[in-house]
Computed example of a mutant assay.
Amino acid sequence: MKYQIITTNSELERICAAARETDVVMLDTEFVRVRTYYPQLGLIQLYDGENASLIDPLAITDMTPFVALLKDTAVLKVLHACGEDIEVFFNEFGCVPTPMVDTQIMAAFLGYGLSTGFAALVKEFVGVELDKSESRTDWLARPLTAKQLDYAAADVFYLMPIYDALRTKVEQAGWLEAAWQESELQCIKRTRVTDPEKAYLDVKGAWQLTPKELAALKPLATWRHQEAIKRNLALNFVLRENEMLSIARELLRTPKAMEEAGVDAHAIRRHGAKLAAIVKDSLTIPADEYPEAIVPLMDYPGYKQLFKQLKDIVKAAAESKGLASEFVASKKQINQLLSWVWKKERDPAKLPDVMQGWRLALVGDKLNQKVQ
């Protein structure tokens, strides 16, 4: 396995031009995401069937040729378990690989587990045992070790024979178009931008709060979201979710009250005055402007029995096609359908996953007819 390390603008231009002459390229990224809101890109791997290249984004000052490759619709990009890679590309370059297919998704259409790892597929299709010990190393450190570089190159070098084998099998099984659709759906989900004004809806336990308490939680969550983006800091490193929930539930209006409630001292020193001001402002909101109470799906009449019936429909459909039930429709996706019917009145502009693409004919129509 030979590879080249790309550290200059001219080298990047050369290898991207060569890649754009091919029909398909393999892509991967290495990044660090410990305390940051956005993943920090450390390395990009590219293999066009002839040249394996390790692109150093910390050394290169003009990534335009690579962005052009990402956008080139004449070149298919193949990735494995691409979710976080998609986030990396979107946050770094404002675009995603187009068109793109995920080999983990392709494998799922052949009955493999939903989270089948790259190393497992390499062992099965190529007969090579990969050393995955470098997966959690510091990809922002320089220089990268020979072991790190070998590990990174293997992730795209062995991806091509896996893709070739999977494509043949998926096409024979009649799932190729579905694999494109599912890969595109992952892109859409991973690039969906959170509305800061709705950030409070993602707070676990928010449903336990009264409308008055939600009136405090909503601006608190909006502030935390915006602060996290501004400082590129993971949400819980700005303010822990359970502490934010306590501040809203108890309507804590002073740093001292927050301290007594067990809120992190560092967070109080840095943000206590701001948090107190947000809570005080929320108390001036008229009751008729409070957010609506959040009613969990499980509190709707007949939820438990209906969910089981829907799950059974999914299981039967999955077994008939040799697919994993969770892949056809997970618990989250079934709940998404119920929310669409009960809370969004089947809004055609907000279709749940099961009412789109390959899932619609397989199971979506049956599930939709079952829900009243």
Rank of each mutant, 00 (worst) to 15 (best):
residue 6 I to G: 08
residue 6 I to Y: 03
residue 8 T to A: 13
residue 12 L to R: 00
residue 14 R to K: 14
residue 21 E to G: 01
residue 23 D to N: 15
residue 28 D to V: 00
residue 28 D to G: 00
residue 31 F to S: 03
residue 34 V to H: 14
residue 37 Y to W: 12
residue 44 I to S: 02
residue 46 L to E: 00
residue 53 S to L: 04
residue 53 S to N: 12
residue 56 D to T: 05
residue 65 P to N: 09
residue 78 V to I: 14
residue 79 L to D: 00
residue 80 H to A: 07
residue 81 A to S: 14
residue 83 G to S: 15
residue 84 E to C: 10
residue 86 I to K: 04
residue 97 P to K: 03
residue 99 P to T: 01
residue 111 G to D: 08
residue 116 T to M: 12
residue 116 T to A: 13
residue 119 A to D: 13
residue 123 K to A: 14
residue 127 G to R: 03
residue 135 S to R: 11
residue 154 A to G: 10
residue 169 K to E: 13
residue 172 Q to N: 15
residue 177 E to G: 00
residue 190 R to H: 13
residue 192 R to L: 13
residue 193 V to Y: 03
residue 194 T to L: 15
residue 199 A to C: 08
residue 202 D to V: 00
residue 209 L to G: 05
residue 210 T to L: 04
residue 213 E to L: 01
residue 213 E to T: 06
residue 213 E to K: 04
residue 215 A to C: 04
residue 220 L to W: 10
residue 221 A to L: 09
residue 222 T to C: 13
residue 233 L to E: 11
residue 246 S to W: 11
residue 252 L to W: 07
residue 256 K to I: 10
residue 269 R to H: 12
residue 279 V to W: 02
residue 281 D to P: 07
residue 291 P to L: 10
residue 293 A to P: 04
residue 295 V to R: 11
residue 299 D to N: 13
residue 306 L to H: 01
residue 306 L to N: 01
residue 306 L to K: 02
residue 311 K to D: 12
residue 317 A to Q: 04
residue 319 E to S: 10
residue 320 S to E: 12
residue 320 S to L: 06
residue 321 K to S: 08
residue 324 A to Q: 14
residue 331 K to T: 15
residue 342 W to P: 00
residue 350 K to P: 02
residue 360 L to G: 00
residue 370 K to D: 06
residue 371 V to K: 01
